[in-house]
Design a protein around this nucleic acid. Structure first.
Lengths: 217, 217
DNA sequence: GTCTATAATTAGATAGAC
DNA sequence: GTCTATCTAATTATAGAC
């Protein structure tokens, strides 16, 4: 009963009597189980503390299998982090709606994405690993910078990148507070409510005139 | 020349000729060096990746000394995290100035504190360790919640805690972007400029009327 | 107090049988 | 494809000499 129990996310297949062609090549199932386990554990413990051994145990496969399929922990990390949705494309879609109301659309989009576990986990893994792992930091900042910040910066006034990064920093803080530290009541506040609070703020960062240098200083 | 070079943060003392009473008990110096090194390395690499060996090397003492003084890595962590300033008191001081302009005062305060290395390091250590270390998470959220959020919540309108946490989440995001991920240009933008951008946002969270439930939804 | 030596544990990775 | 066995390296931690 090690690997023969039905995989809960497999669609209906023939009973496992004969190994007819068309059934999964046997390795496929283990490979997927490993990826699922890796995603969960990287998200839960960060890159360093998510050990290959534990990932293998969670996936109910032998540790050696992990290396057989992915060669190295680092590559497993990379593959596991292949996001199930492409934030860049989705952000691009939001941007195509114009800058009017863009702030609120962006908050709503991320709140929605984060509420689907399979999409928030890779982000959490990156966020948790970035501070202590060079690869993760590069991966995280590189991705956020190039695919998200840079795109937003193309549709807002100067200082465009600063505006986009103020938005980004607030969103990262929100992710941290809601999904990592789970600070209440913020963590349990409905996406709608959060969006109505934060939307105008982000909008202000995106489109309001740059503030004059502080006259009181 | 292992431990006899002058400690750069010691005040002027007598030349180290005789061991007169009144000089440091010899262990004090090593103990302090270890704590300084621990603070720096926990902040730089997080709890897991800051190894006792490396802390000892940085402190120019033998690894065994660390265990002699602190018994366990965990206790060293706890002691090292004793914050050099008390954020709670300082936030209280800001709050005593009334809610008018409070948003900008708070940003300026934190930007100022974070620019002094000895005060930002423990915060970074907590921030980096929190996601993967139960102790750190409890330490971090517990402190932030009780000492900062709760105090702010006492002087703003309902929903007071939500308002305070929106402010807090943005500040955490700023800390992450500026000091951990070092996203440019935000990381290099002057505190003045950041304060003029963020101040009105935080002020809005603190004192503006609660937004109506989104009518477009 | 400080250090050497080392035990005990754990992690990433590989070789080779089946 | 899958597993057993094992290697190497790093790390926490301890015992005991000086």
């Amino acid at each position: 009963m090690t690997v023969d129990e039905p995989d809960e996310m497999a669609e209906q297949h023939e009973p496992d009597t004969v190994a007819r062609r068309g059934r999964w090549r046997t390795g496929e199932r283990s490979r997927r189980r490993i990826l699922d386990a890796a995603r969960a554990l990287f998200a839960e413990r960060g890159y360093d503390r998510a050990t290959v051994r534990r990932i293998a145990a969670t996936a109910q496969v032998d540790p050696a299998m992990v290396y057989y399929f992915f060669e190295t922990k680092s590559r497993l990390f990379t593959e596991a982090l292949a996001l199930p949705v492409n934030p860049a494309e989705e952000v691009a879609a939001e941007l195509s709606g114009g800058v009017d109301g863009l702030g609120e659309r962006i908050v709503r989009h991320f709140l929605d994405v984060w509420d689907r576990a399979p999409t928030v986990e890779p982000m959490l893994a990156l966020l948790r690993s970035a501070p202590t792992d060079e690869r993760s930091a590069a991966m995280f900042t590189g991705y956020i910078e190039q695919e998200i910040i840079a795109r937003i910066a193309t549709v807002v006034p100067e200082p465009a990148r600063l505006r986009a990064e103020l938005v980004g920093s607030h969103l990262m803080g929100l992710l941290l507070a809601r999904h990592v530290l789970r600070i209440e009541p913020l963590a349990s506040t409905s996406p709608d409510t959060v969006a109505t609070w934060m939307g105008p703020t982000l909008q202000r960062y995106l489109t309001d005139p740059a503030p004059a240098p502080d006259p009181t200083a």
